[in-house]
Design a protein around this nucleic acid. Structure first.
Length: 429
RNA sequence: GGUGGGGUUCCCGAGUGGCCAAAGGGAACAGACUGUAAAUCUGUCGGCGAAGCCUUCGGAGGUUCAAAUCCUCCCCCCACCA
């Protein structure tokens, strides 16, 4: 059995662990059941959750048993850890929808079934908790004095908005989850983002006090880009794993646009390529890194959306931005296309517009607004005035220039905003 | 429950009767430079096909020629006291 801790360490997954040596021994010598909780605050997970997901996947690939805990119960409350504002309460109906969406997504990363991985919902036990027994059995193990010193509450305790009692309880519930999974599945390891440290330690202590037994915790670093911003946020908001929210094309583009300084780190975290191959690219500099970015984008899209979509996104990128060749010697494990591949634009954003529209002509800014390359007419005019709008690679000079039939090539018109945002119009007869 | 302080455009935050579509910063968008990178500099940044008009400063009313600014009621948040 490969040494999971070593894998985690060299790939950059570990921010902090409890009981360093004991934990290593435990993982080396046992089939470990471990869990991570996911809050069902949206019907899709996003790139921000990718580190925990990849961690579970590594666990499984190395013969351990991951448990995905969906916070159907705690989701009714909202974790205040590291948050500046109180979460909106979500209705049970919405939570139910979200849970279904999340389950589906995780199946791409983790193989459920045959007890190779479990998916549980803490609503199953939390919803039937009785207040008084809970206080007596679980609450008595918690010291408020300690809790208010927890880093995870600090932000909120110091803030003007304060911390509601409901949220204050979150830690107890998460600790209780851990205890429950310990009892039920002998789960002794909880992992989570670095903001979960307090909650994880609370669970470990609860298990120690209530069961006189040992359990462990690992936290992952908060992944920031080298720019210092939280990773996974773009202009349009979060980068989702759901292809209905973030298309595979956009997903691929998100990764292609990785900062030079982040490429190696992200390859280690977000792909399964061997570290030897990843280390090699540390020799690359400047534009040479672009081939590594292609591999990063391809592999991440492959994992999240499957091979077909990854290929399509690759081909679309090639059709729009030109093909990049991956040198033979690098990333030999990657299945990224290396030959001169077909250049197809199938997954380039596209909409269909009636031929009639172009017979009489449509003002350019209207067209840009129509396909959502600009959010309003004013924004579209601004874009054109500033020289950022192109039709078939021809810069539009006047915002009300009519786009007409002769702009159509092969039943298509290509619109571009700035350098990177492309939209294709296909003509309907 | 009492007292005091607040709720401003995507975010932070100035603005206390007209000069306010609202300072400043951040984010974002575009241009130049580039490698679909970063940094930098420049411009833009509520809506409407221009002038002009319309909508916006927690909500609802009111005073005024004129209200983000004044008054009334309501909702929410914070601090201190109880």
């Amino acid at each position: 059995m490969a040494d999971l801790i070593d894998i985690f360490e060299e790939r950059g997954f570990i921010e902090n662990t409890t009981h360093d040596e004991e934990l290593k021994d435990y993982i080396r010598n046992n089939t470990v059941t471990c869990y991570i909780g996911f809050d069902p605050t949206a019907s899709s997970l996003h790139v921000g959750s990718l580190v925990p997901i990849m961690a579970l996947s590594h666990m499984q690939k190395n013969g351990h048993i991951p448990i995905v805990l969906i916070g159907g119960g705690t989701g009714l409350i909202g974790d205040p850890s590291g948050k500046t504002e109180m979460r909106k309460f979500l209705s049970p109906e919405i939570l139910e929808i979200n849970i279904i969406g999340i389950k589906k997504q995780l199946s791409r990363f983790i193989e459920f079934g045959n007890n190779k991985a479990l998916l549980v919902n803490n609503n199953d036990w939390l919803s039937e908790l009785k207040y008084i027994p809970f206080l007596r059995d679980t609450g008595r193990h918690f010291s408020v004095n300690r809790m208010i010193k927890a880093e995870s509450y600090k932000l909120r305790l110091d803030s003007e908005d304060g911390l509601s009692f409901v949220e204050f309880n979150y830690m107890l519930l998460q600790a209780y989850d851990f205890l429950k999974l310990f009892d039920k599945y002998q789960c002794r390891l909880q992992m989570g983002g670095s903001d979960q440290w307090g909650n994880i330690v609370a669970g470990i202590e609860l298990i120690r006090k209530a069961r006189q037994d040992t359990s462990f915790g690992i936290t992952f670093p908060l992944i920031k880009t080298s720019n210092g911003t939280k990773m996974g946020k773009t202009a349009k908001g979060a980068v989702w794993l759901d292809s209905n929210r973030t298309t595979p094309y956009d997903y691929y583009q998100f990764w292609i646009n990785t900062d030079d300084r982040d490429v190696a780190r992200f390859l280690a975290l977000f792909t399964f390529l061997p570290m030897d191959e990843i280390r090699y690219i540390k020799n690359l500099e400047g534009a040479d890194l672009n081939s590594a970015k292609t591999v990063l984008a391809f592999e991440t899209t492959l994992i999240a959306h499957g091979r077909d979509e990854a290929i399509k996104a690759y081909q679309a990128a090639a059709s729009v931005f030109g093909e990049r060749f991956i040198p033979e010697g690098i990333f030999t494990s990657s299945t990224v296309p290396r030959y001169k591949s077909e250049i197809k634009d199938e997954s380039v954003p596209c909409s269909y517009i009636d031929m009639d529209v172009f017979k009489s002509g449509i003002p350019a800014f209207k067209l840009f607004q129509e396909v959502k390359l600009a959010l309003s007419g004013a924004a579209a005019r601004r874009l054109i005035d500033q020289g950022g709008a192109y039709v078939n690679d021809r810069r539009i000079e006047k915002y009300d220039e009519l786009i007409i039939s002769k702009d159509i090539n092969n039943m298509e018109i290509i619109l571009r905003s700035g350098k990177k945002r492309i939209h294709k119009i296909r003509i309907k007869q």
